[in-house]
Simulated scan of single mutants.
Amino acid sequence: MFSTKLKELRSLKGITQEELANILGVRQQTIGKWESAITVPRLPMLQKIGAFFNVSVDYLLGRTEEPHTNVKVTPSTDLTPKEEREIEYDLEDMINSMASAAYESDNGEQEDIEALQATLRAAMIQAKRIAKKKYTPRKYRKD
């Protein structure tokens, strides 16, 4: 669903993948992967994309047909960029190991895959937070 929405919004705005990549601070190949449903960006990037196109993250992910909502999702500030990258790499590994055939399916199943990715990402972020809280010695905690 995200890939379709991104292509649609980019076309409506009349910009190329390269132009969007420059605006978002990513490579053109990254935009291509997003539009081909190979990968899905992390929440902070989804928020940046939503802000650029003036739509909600829920709309980008196909959770609502309304482009605008009053609900705002705030990015996680308690994970380091390295930890967020690790989650993304682990998530990508999980999805790829599930079955490469799933990526060759029709759009209906692709939406299911994107929903699964979003759910797994949220679970992995929560697990990382719990592990940090549980296993970080008190003298190094910031709370």
Rank of each mutant, 00 (worst) to 15 (best):
T4I: 12
K5I: 05
L6Q: 01
K7M: 09
E8Q: 14
E8F: 12
L9P: 07
R10V: 04
K13R: 12
G14S: 06
I15H: 00
T16Q: 03
Q17F: 05
E18I: 11
E19M: 06
E19S: 07
L20D: 01
I23S: 04
L24N: 01
L24Q: 01
G25F: 04
G25A: 08
G25R: 08
G25E: 03
V26D: 00
R27Y: 15
T30R: 02
T30W: 03
G32F: 02
K33P: 01
W34G: 03
E35C: 03
E35S: 03
A37R: 05
A37N: 14
I38L: 14
V40N: 07
V40I: 15
R42L: 12
L43R: 04
P44Q: 00
L46E: 00
Q47K: 14
Q47S: 13
K48E: 04
K48R: 08
I49W: 05
G50N: 01
A51P: 05
F52C: 01
F53T: 02
V55E: 06
V55M: 07
V57G: 00
D58F: 05
Y59F: 10
L60T: 01
L61H: 00
G62N: 05
G62Q: 04
E65P: 04
H68C: 12
T69V: 11
N70A: 10
K72D: 09
P75N: 15
L79M: 07
T80D: 00
E83R: 03
I87L: 01
I87D: 02
I87T: 00
E88L: 07
Y89P: 03
Y89C: 09
Y89G: 06
D90T: 07
D90S: 06
D90G: 08
L91Q: 04
L91A: 02
E92D: 12
D93M: 10
M94H: 09
I95D: 01
N96G: 10
S97I: 07
M98P: 02
M98G: 07
A102I: 13
Y103I: 10
Y103S: 15
Y103F: 15
D106E: 10
G108C: 08
Q110H: 13
D112M: 12
A115K: 10
A115P: 05
L116G: 07
L116S: 10
A118L: 06
T119W: 11
T119F: 13
T119P: 08
L120T: 11
L120I: 15
A122Q: 13
A123Y: 11
M124W: 05
M124E: 09
I125G: 05
I125D: 03
R129K: 15
I130Y: 12
I130M: 12
I130W: 09
A131I: 13
A131W: 10
K133I: 15
K134V: 13
T136I: 05
P137Q: 04
K139V: 13
Y140W: 08
R141E: 03
R141T: 06
D143W: 12
